[in-house]
Design a protein around this nucleic acid. Structure first.
Length: 770
DNA sequence: GAGCACTGC
């Protein structure tokens, strides 16, 4: 038989030779090669089971540890393990497979291992990739699978996320990674040649990156018959993916179903709609505490204020309840949970429930009141009761006015199902839905809106163009964005100079290398012309991370006072620069961030992003410059901002309110804005519709700069009639009369000329990069 | 008078 001597097996020769005389753990030649007789993609379940039960690890050639055997026995109890033969058969016979499995099915850990045993990527110098929407998931699943395979993490099994590559080139053949990371790799190699199989996990979450990858991979599969694709999803939108990959390819995509392994959850609806869901949620928590047996409670609300208010009321009401009947009602702790909470406070959700006040007395209960963060990102143990009012804050995007929105909206059925599932992780549970069954059936959407339909697509469009997609409107999206969303993105890229006649310019190609919004990468590229690239690097990094300011519910005044100390009057962008510089100056003082109400995690992340962006700048020979004169430096920084954010400018009208230029939208400075007094012209980073039309991260600009550095957009003839146009016209007239007066007197406006040269230099240096 | 959750060689 071919496998009697491992050297006869072409797939194992490399490994066998590599181990020759490698020490006491080297198997003697009499021990049979664990993978002998394995033919790639023709492997059977029987063969895999035999290898799994064998003494020798087929990948490391070491003896299996006792720990391995223990984990293997647990793996054998997973529902998916029993379906190994069926999976391997489908994998052998198809190029694309859709896998559906509820939580607890083991699909994320087991399917990639089945694939490895069948595909044998290490024998052809390829990898199997499995993508996750979140970094923590990629890391923790890779660790788990490395343990299951008896392999040191980072060797044959590894992970790759932004800022951390835990893989060994040439050795790693199973790689967990974030979906964004694979998308970045695709921009370098659009056929993803390194991979023999790509598994897109959690596809139902429909992140922009997963959606773009699905569209891309559908095309790659046609060119590369050797590439296998597996799309894994938790809910029944798997049918949608199945149709998507079958359509027009002429081959139907099989569906592989894996049963979940969670405990049953009883779902209880209200008889009548609840007019006030917060009040109803509080009432339900107390009803559970009074009447239901032991077990912790998870309540879903929509935001920080709502959660803090509800926690306070629950604590007060629980106290009343205990005072009335301390014999039968146990102690209760109520813990808020949302992302902007400092990490130490987030940790409280893992505390044990309070102990009974006396031995034999009524048991204590933990209540966690959380945003959607507990729906997917964080898992809390021992939750038995879920209270689901049916709402969450959801992001939207209005392309017409380029505004993001964040509004309380009804959740989808899929989301409600996910919330209910959180009650059944340790034992059978109950889910109290604070809406009627009729509303569930008729008022709620099946699926949460895919992110690609609710996002600003500027960076996505730039990525697609870089991936070689010529016709963005006819690209094969799973769900196509509104044409207006695409045209608005294309328009902005055109004004930024990234696109020309539908083609990527040299400038655009450079911009695409930066993992930040195109407006921001444009700033970095032009900043040397204004001698402030070191500072722009900091500011763009700070604008690319979450809000660095904490504003705890019960210390608002102290937080505001701390923030005022670091605020610069010229604008929020310069304040961001100041905060980062002060943070670096005080980096050895462990209490500094805490006493200034700043998020250490966010600032650290800004440092990481800054270093990454700096490496990219160096790669493209973009000079890192600073000016020693602070006043001039600050002015130049604000001028640089105009080069990227010229479309995000507002002008204060005669009535004292701000109007965005061209779109004429009424906007209000966000209360977090540090500008005083309110200037005539402002440039902003974000326009968000929440409780009002707010602009956030705002700096003062001079109208002359708009005409000078963004003349293409500020072409007066393209402006709608109105206050803003009249104001700009006045500036132009003033300038014209000034310069004609100067020409008459034979003087030269040296300053204006110098600035003009700057703009030209920018253009020339962009062209140099062709 | 105030922001759900993620992510990026």
């Amino acid at each position: 038989m071919a496998g009697s001597d491992p050297k006869d097996n072409p797939y194992l020769a490399h490994h066998y030779n590599g181990r020759k005389g490698a020490g006491p753990s080297t198997p003697s030649p009499s021990i049979k090669e664990p993978l002998s007789g394995f033919r790639p993609r023709k492997v059977t379940g029987e063969q895999v089971r035999k290898a799994l039960n064998g003494d020798i690890n087929p990948f490391t050639k070491q003896r299996h540890t006792p720990q391995y055997r223990k984990i293997l026995e647990a793996r054998k109890k997973l529902p998916v393990y029993a379906q190994m033969d069926e999976f391997l058969k489908i994998f052998s016979e198809n190029q694309v497979i859709v896998v559906v499995g509820e939580t607890g099915s083991g699909k994320t850990t087991q399917i990639p291992q089945f694939v490895v045993y069948s595909d044998l990527p290490h024998t052809k110098g390829k990898l199997v990739a499995c993508t996750q929407p979140r970094r923590v998931a990629a890391m923790s699943v890779a660790k788990r699978v490395a343990d299951e395979m008896d392999i040191q993490l980072g060797r044959h099994v590894g992970y790759s996320i932004r800022f951390e590559d835990m893989t060994e080139p040439g050795t790693t053949f199973l790689k967990y990674m974030t979906d964004g990371m694979l998308l970045r790799e695709a921009m370098k190699d659009p056929s993803l040649e390194r991979y023999s199989t790509i598994i897109l996990d959690e596809a139902h979450e429909r992140t922009v990156a997963t959606d773009v990858l699905m569209g891309l991979l559908k095309g790659v599969a046609k060119r590369r018959s050797d590439l296998k694709i597996i799309v894994m999803s938790a809910t029944l939108d798997a049918l949608k993916f199945q149709n998507y990959f079958s359509l027009r390819s002429g081959v139907s995509t099989p569906l592989f179903k894996v049963p979940g392994r969670t405990y049953p959850v009883e779902v209880i609806y209200t008889q009548e709609p609840e007019p006030d869901y917060v009040e109803a949620a509080i009432r339900t928590v107390l009803m559970i505490h009074r009447a239901e047996e032991e077990g912790d409670v998870l309540v879903f609300l929509t935001g920080e204020k709502e959660i803090e208010d509800a926690c306070r009321k629950i604590r007060l009401d629980a106290e009343d309840l205990i005072n009335q009947d301390s014999e039968s009602v146990g102690p209760l702790v109520c813990i808020p949970l949302y992302s902007s909470l400092p990490p130490q406070q987030q940790q409280r959700i893992f505390d044990a429930p309070p102990a009974a006040r006396s031995t034999g007395g009524p048991r204590g209960r933990k209540v966690v009141v959380s945003t959607n963060i507990a729906e997917t990102s964080l898992t809390i143990d021992r939750i038995v009761y879920v209270v689901d009012p049916g709402f969450s804050k959801q992001k939207g995007y209005i392309p017409r006015i380029r505004a993001e929105s964040l509004l309380v909206s009804r959740i989808s059925k899929a989301s409600a199902q996910q919330r209910a599932g959180r009650a059944g992780r340790t034992r059978p549970g109950k889910c109290f839905r604070l809406y009627t069954e009729k509303d569930f059936m008729s008022e709620m959407e099946e699926q949460t809106c895919p992110e690609i339909l609710a996002s600003n697509l500027t960076i996505t469009v730039l990525e697609l163009v870089k991936l070689g997609i010529k016709d963005l409107v006819r690209f094969d999206y799973v769900d196509a964005p509104a044409p207006e969303a695409l045209t608005r993105a294309i328009e902005l890229l055109y004004y930024l100079g990234a696109l020309d006649n539908g083609n990527l310019t040299a400038l655009g190609a450079t911009m695409a290398e930066f993992p930040i919004d195109p407006q921001l990468s444009k700033l970095l590229i032009v900043s040397p012309e204004f001698k402030c690239s070191n500072e722009m690097l900091t500011i763009t990094a700070m604008m690319s991370v979450p809000n660095v300011w904490f504003r705890p519910y019960d210390q608002k005044q102290q937080a505001d006072a701390a923030k005022a100390l670091l605020t610069l009057p010229d604008g929020d962008h310069l304040t961001l620069l100041n905060v980062y510089n002060q943070y670096k100056r005080n980096i050895h003082d462990k209490n500094w961030t805490w006493t200034h109400f700043l998020s250490h995690r966010a600032l650290q992340q800004a440092g990481n992003v800054r270093a990454q962006l700096q490496r990219t700048m160096e790669r493209f020979n973009i000079d890192l410059l600073s000016l020693s004169d602070e006043k001039e430096l600050y002015t130049n920084i604000r001028q640089t901002l105009v080069c990227g954010f010229f479309m995000q400018v507002a002008h204060k009208g005669e009535k004292g309110n701000y109007l965005t230029v061209k779109d004429n939208q009424i906007v209000v400075l966000h209360p977090s804005c540090g500008l005083k007094p309110q200037p005539k012209w402002v440039l902003f980073n974000e326009f968000v519709l929440t409780t009002g039309p707010f602009i956030r991260t705002v700096s003062e600009v001079k109208p002359e700069w708009l005409l000078e550095y963004a003349g293409g957009y500020f072409d007066i003839s393209t402006f709608p009639k109105g206050e803003t146009k009249r104001a700009l016209q006045r500036i132009i007239n003033k300038k014209a009369s000034k310069s004609s007066a100067r020409v008459d007197s034979g003087k030269d406006d040296r300053k204006a000329k110098k600035k003009k040269n700057k703009g030209m230099k920018t253009k020339v240096s962009n062209k140099k990069k062709v």
